[in-house]
């Protein structure tokens, strides 16, 4: 039981001190899980990130679940995952309930009008980075344009677009392998 509580506490701390996405968590994970507790080597941690890249779901959750399971089985997986989401649950619930009360305030409304501009800029910034990283060949560019057409022209949902892109890539990969064999 104390082992589970320790896992919960460790990942609670990691959740509390991570701002942003899964990669923002990496330095803290290295310090806590690799250097301090020696749950796994640095190489294994990076392997874990590449597994996170090829499984669905949020990377930080995947990593927490995996490490928790390695340490203490299913109970450990649940304790670690509960630990990492708990700070979000508490903090966001508090912020959301406070925000609801203050949104009528004139100055809060002005501030959020400014903040929305910043959100648009943050998204543009991320799109630029993702485009550099993920559109490296003609097929990737074709999938990108195809997805955009389905969204804008076809009015398809995000789930449908991901599903179609996945099926298309599976088929295309299969065709490429057959051609190579011949």
């Amino acid at each position: 039981m104390t082992e589970l509580a320790k896992l919960f506490g460790l990942f609670f701390k990691i959740g509390l001190f991570t701002f942003g996405g899964g990669y923002a968590m990496l330095p803290l994970l290295k310090a806590e899980v690799v250097a301090k507790r020696r749950f796994l080597s640095e190489e294994e941690l990076l392997d874990l990130y590449s597994i996170g890249q090829c499984t669905p779901g949020i990377i930080s959750i995947n990593v927490a679940t995996f490490i928790g399971y390695q340490q203490k089985g299913i109970g450990g997986a649940i304790a670690a995952t509960a630990g990492i989401v708990m700070p979000s649950l508490i903090i966001i619930t508090l912020v959301a309930s406070i925000l609801q009360k203050f949104m009528d305030n004139r100055y809060v409304a002005y501030a959020f009008a400014g903040i929305r501009i910043c959100v648009a800029a943050l998204i543009a910034d991320i799109i630029y980075d993702l485009a550099k990283k993920n559109i490296k060949n003609y097929m990737a560019a074709a999938v990108f344009i195809g997805a955009l057409v389905l969204l804008v022209g076809g009015g398809l949902s995000a789930v449908m677009v991901v599903f179609i892109a996945g099926a298309w890539s599976l088929g295309w990969g299969e065709i490429k392998r057959r051609i190579k064999k011949k």
Binding site: I123, N134, A140, A147, V162, W172
Partner: peptide, 15 residues
Amino acid sequence: DVLSGIRPAVLALIL
């Protein structure tokens, strides 16, 4: 194959 193919589509979603 599937997950690397999905990434450009996810980019379109975010755009």
